[in-house]
Amino acid sequence: MLLLFIILLLGGCWSKRELNELAIVTAFGVDKSDEFVEISVQIVNPSQVASNKASSFQVPVFTYHAKGKSLFDAMRKLTTLTPRKPYYSHAQIIIIGEELAKEGMNSILDLLQRDPEGRSEFNIIIAHESTAQEILSILTPLEDIPASKLFKSLKDTEATWGTTESVILDDLVQSLGHIDNSAVLPTIQIHGDADAGKSSSNVEKIKSPAQLQYGGLAVFKNYKLIGFLTEEESRNYNFLHNNIKSTFETLACPEQGKISTEIIQSSTKVTGRIQHDIPSITIQLDIEQNVAEISCPLDLTKPETIDALNKATSKQIKESIERTIQTIQQTYQADILKFGEVLHREDYKAWNRIKKDWSTLYPELEVNLVVDVQTKGVGTATKLKLNKK
């Protein structure tokens, strides 16, 4: 009888919601609008995406916008516009407008963490030189759902070029919770005619009038956007952050022409030292590369040619990274590379003595960088002869 009574309490469908009662949100954005917060949601049009015979006069997604005194207020007001209740658990992307990011994201991150319907696996992106609403209004070719394009492009760029970094909510909150509350986020911007990108003509032409493209990384400190890294600086950041899976390097030939190499592996080791309460950082960067393209006469069968190529690549990467470190330390003064965490792990007693002065020590922190490049593959064409005109 006890078992029968317990079975009566195991009914699990009392709060069920059918799919045809929900509006599936694939991405949403948040902007600052005067004294209000504006939310924009991208909702899937299921009849257009799922059907094998999709009608040509309907778009695959719809966007809705609502304003409120807070993000929570705006999300509730959105229900007055949508035909179904927005369901956020399938969102892949959240886009933060540049103006709102400069003002601070404390309250937004707090709500996203508390919301029981949301998940923390979505990627957070900053809209650069445009609003989140404009980004979410652009229709994209090949991918019916623009949010899928944003997600896949982010992952592909991170894997093959190294200028972006995918950051989910948990990663961002953890980074901002470190010593100086600093972090980075990828940026997205519109190239072309934003108004034309909102219509179906954007996916009906060979060359789309408007395209979404990832740029460098946005730098945050104390939950506020303080600046942007260029694409070169963003790639260097990923070198230092041990987040380069594959990228390329272009060097000048000894006389004329270019050499392009494919970096196939990169490993970074960061160590710290505090001596007489003066901190320093040492970075060892080991890189493996293949020769991808040559436009000058070189004999790659000679060891001295490979040795010269290794040294030239090492020198170029080292000089570029050193400029980036200087920009991060002195221009932004944000410890996005978590050097403070390294020093804390290496010598926590000495760190406890200097941590109160970290904001003044960090800009002048000594960073010693060692770059070692090894060429592994040169291809089958080891000798290249060019006709001289």
Score class of each variant (00 low, 15 high):
residue 96 I to L: 13
residue 80 T to S: 14
residue 240 L to Q: 03
residue 341 E to W: 03
residue 40 S to L: 05
residue 317 I to V: 06
residue 383 K to E: 02
residue 72 F to T: 05
residue 313 T to P: 02
residue 254 P to E: 03
residue 250 T to N: 03
residue 289 Q to F: 00
residue 379 G to K: 01
residue 17 R to A: 14
residue 236 N to F: 09
residue 5 F to T: 13
residue 77 K to G: 10
residue 25 V to T: 08
residue 256 Q to W: 10
residue 265 Q to N: 11
residue 97 G to Y: 10
residue 38 E to W: 06
residue 258 K to M: 11
residue 161 W to V: 15
residue 301 T to R: 10
residue 104 G to P: 07
residue 266 S to H: 00
residue 197 G to I: 13
residue 91 A to G: 13
residue 184 V to F: 07
residue 306 I to C: 01
residue 108 I to M: 12
residue 139 L to H: 10
residue 238 N to R: 06
residue 347 D to H: 04
residue 165 E to G: 15
residue 327 T to K: 11
residue 226 I to S: 12
residue 1 M to L: 09
residue 210 A to D: 09
residue 146 P to G: 08
residue 185 L to W: 05
residue 61 V to R: 01
residue 332 Y to K: 05
residue 103 E to S: 09
residue 263 I to T: 02
residue 361 L to T: 12
residue 100 L to T: 11
residue 321 I to T: 05
residue 305 T to G: 11
residue 378 V to D: 00
residue 338 K to F: 13
residue 101 A to P: 15
residue 159 A to H: 10
residue 100 L to P: 07
residue 23 A to P: 05
residue 140 T to H: 12
residue 119 R to D: 01
residue 281 I to H: 02
residue 268 T to G: 07
residue 178 H to C: 01
residue 49 V to I: 04
residue 53 K to Q: 12
residue 90 H to R: 10
residue 387 N to W: 04
residue 237 Y to E: 03
residue 152 K to W: 14
residue 253 C to A: 06
residue 248 F to Y: 07
residue 325 I to S: 08
residue 344 H to S: 07
residue 324 T to Q: 09
residue 277 D to F: 08
residue 90 H to L: 14
residue 243 N to C: 11
residue 118 G to S: 15
residue 204 E to Y: 10
residue 330 Q to Y: 07
residue 334 A to T: 11
residue 58 Q to P: 02
residue 158 E to R: 11
residue 156 D to K: 14
residue 10 L to I: 09
residue 353 R to G: 08
residue 328 I to A: 06
residue 56 S to I: 03
residue 175 S to D: 13
residue 146 P to F: 13
residue 193 D to E: 08
residue 355 K to D: 08
residue 41 V to S: 02
residue 215 G to E: 10
residue 237 Y to R: 00
residue 160 T to D: 11
residue 260 S to L: 10
residue 112 L to V: 01
residue 264 I to H: 00
residue 58 Q to C: 03
residue 137 S to N: 15
residue 139 L to A: 14
residue 190 I to Q: 01
residue 104 G to C: 08
residue 86 P to N: 08
residue 188 I to H: 04
residue 80 T to A: 12
residue 312 A to E: 03
residue 266 S to F: 00
residue 238 N to S: 08
residue 320 S to D: 05
residue 215 G to S: 12
residue 199 S to C: 05
residue 64 Y to F: 15
residue 66 A to P: 07
residue 44 V to E: 04
residue 387 N to I: 09
residue 130 S to G: 15
residue 20 N to I: 08
residue 275 Q to H: 13
residue 126 I to T: 14
residue 210 A to C: 14
residue 81 L to D: 11
residue 105 M to L: 15
residue 211 Q to I: 12
residue 141 P to D: 12
residue 13 C to A: 05
residue 293 E to K: 03
residue 102 K to H: 14
residue 1 M to C: 05
residue 39 I to G: 07
residue 43 I to K: 03
residue 261 T to A: 03
residue 5 F to C: 12
residue 170 D to C: 05
residue 150 L to R: 01
residue 352 N to E: 11
residue 147 A to Y: 04
residue 167 V to P: 04
residue 354 I to T: 06
residue 287 I to W: 00
residue 89 S to F: 05
residue 224 K to M: 08
residue 247 T to I: 06
residue 343 L to N: 02
residue 374 Q to Y: 01
residue 373 V to Q: 00
residue 373 V to F: 00
residue 315 K to M: 01
residue 38 E to I: 02
residue 359 S to M: 03
residue 162 G to E: 04
residue 113 Q to E: 13
residue 320 S to L: 04
residue 216 G to E: 09
residue 96 I to K: 01
residue 323 R to S: 10
residue 227 G to N: 13
residue 303 P to A: 00
residue 335 D to Y: 10
residue 60 P to L: 02
residue 102 K to R: 15
